[in-house]
């Protein structure tokens, strides 16, 4: 009786398909970062403190995503924990395979550097693995995810996840600083206005705002858009700090860069509802 319950071939086969989707999601979300030179360099140059901070933030984030969009059915702490661990395995395997194929990780590289590079790439790939079920699943899975019953803190969490995802894709490149230097203060203010406006439009259209806010755009603005934009900016600041760009510049430059990075972060935050 127990033996039959332990290994159920149909169940294993169905889960293998989920695992395949997870790898697909990890590739889809991880590839832009895996093929970015600055990410390889950051893995070596970040230093252990920032790497550990990044990992320490990634695990609860993945846990939250698994709660809202996990790729295995069923709920509960065990399920969510399993999903996070599986997503990390998928992330590490995807990152290791591709970075070895790209020749970025070579035999004889110092262990600390390899671990740093893999971890930096595994976390976003694991995000992709967790989102895979929602993104790549066919129409047969209607019951997935708990995001419809997300509480207000849950909605803010989803915004942070979306902001982190898009900010992480942009932040490693030098273009963020270049844009901040090229744009005048007036243009930065314009970008800020555009960020908030677009965010509000997406938030309102994508249904972040619940039933009670429907038809009340001003309430939704203060309830979702403004906190969301603040979250996007904080996420942008954290990502810049992770890549070691905060310490060596003046306050005005730092704010400009964070506002530039805040644009994709705000779009990511607003669109999180569409992704998760």
């Amino acid at each position: 009786m127990t033996g039959a319950a332990l290994i159920d071939l149909d169940c294993e086969r169905a889960w293998l398909r989920d695992l395949g989707r997870a790898f697909g999601g990890a590739l889809l979300f991880g590839l832009p970062l895996l093929m970015t030179m600055e990410m390889w360099e950051a893995g070596a140059a970040m230093g252990p403190g920032r790497q550990l901070a990044f990992l320490a933030l990634s695990v609860p984030l993945l846990w939250g995503l698994s709660y809202y969009a996990g790729f295995s059915n069923g709920g509960g702490v065990v399920s969510d924990g399993l999903d996070v661990a599986v997503a990390l395995a998928v992330g590490f395997i995807t990152a290791a395979m591709l970075l070895v194929l790209f020749g970025v990780i070579q035999w004889g590289d110092p262990a600390g550097e390899v671990a740093g590079r893999l971890m930096l790439q595994a976390a976003p790939a694991a995000m992709g693995a967790l989102l895979a079920r929602r993104q790549l699943a066919g129409g047969d899975d209607k019951d997935d995810g708990d995001e419809d019953k997300a509480s207000y803190p849950g909605e803010l969490f989803l915004m942070a996840a979306g902001a982190l995802f898009l900010a992480l894709n942009m932040a490693p490149t030098e273009e963020m600083e270049l844009i901040a230097y090229k744009a005048s203060p007036l243009q930065i203010l314009g970008l800020m206005t555009l960020s908030v406006t677009l965010m509000h439009l997406i938030v309102y259209a994508a249904g972040f705002a619940g039933q009670e806010e429907h038809g009340r755009p001003v309430a939704a603005f203060f309830h979702f858009t403004l906190p969301g934009y603040a979250i996007a900016l904080l996420v942008g600041l954290f990502v810049m700090w992770t890549f070691g760009r905060v310490a060596d510049q003046g306050l005005a430059e730092l704010v400009s860069v964070v506002l530039v990075l805040g644009f994709p972060a705000a779009i990511g935050a607003a669109a999180a509802r569409l992704l998760v």
Binding site: A85, V86, L88, L118, M119
Partner: peptide, 25 residues
């Protein structure tokens, strides 16, 4: 519902890989 054995194996692998990377760092 029961979790597939494969899921436990992959989850164990993920835990080991993550802890190993964190340990090295």
């Amino acid at each position: 519902p029961g979790h597939p054995v494969l899921q436990w194996i992959m989850a164990g692998l993920g835990l080991v890989l993550t802890l190993a990377a964190a340990g090295v760092i």
